[in-house]
């Protein structure tokens, strides 16, 4: 693709993945909880919001207002979906990483420094 939108940060990649995992249940808090459960990372909600906004601006996520729940005081959630471009980006990131990684493991006599 070559455009600026292609490069995404590490937290952005994580959020993209989690939104994809959660499928129709991805919104601020659920993403935050999922990240915490799956990776043990504590991220604050404000950070999640800004990352998701940024990803939406880049066209990697799409959002719509979802259903309300009692714990939210009757307020609706903004549900995020992974777009095709988002999926493509994830694929690209993964392929780049695997390509590099495979080259790393093909070096037979490499001594890892302490």
């Amino acid at each position: 693709m070559g455009t600026k939108g292609t490069y995404i940060g590490e937290l952005e990649e994580l959020v993209l993945l989690v939104v994809g995992l959660l499928y129709e249940g991805a919104y601020g808090v659920s993403v935050l909880k999922e990240i915490k459960e799956q990776t043990g990372r504590e991220v604050n909600i404000s950070g999640i919001h800004s990352v998701m906004n940024r990803l939406e601006d880049k066209g990697l996520l799409r959002s719509e207002m979802g259903g309300a729940s009692n714990t939210r005081g009757g307020r609706r959630k903004r549900i995020y979906f992974l777009t095709a471009a988002g999926k493509a980006t994830l694929d690209q990131v993964r392929s780049v990483r695997e390509k590099l990684y495979s080259q790393l493991s093909s070096l037979p006599n490499y001594q890892f420094s302490a």
């Binding site: 909600i45 919001h49 729940s69 005081g73 307020r75």
Partner: peptide, 11 residues
Amino acid sequence: REQVQGDAHEL
């Protein structure tokens, strides 16, 4: 407001 405040409350 709705989404942000909802998230904060849920948390």
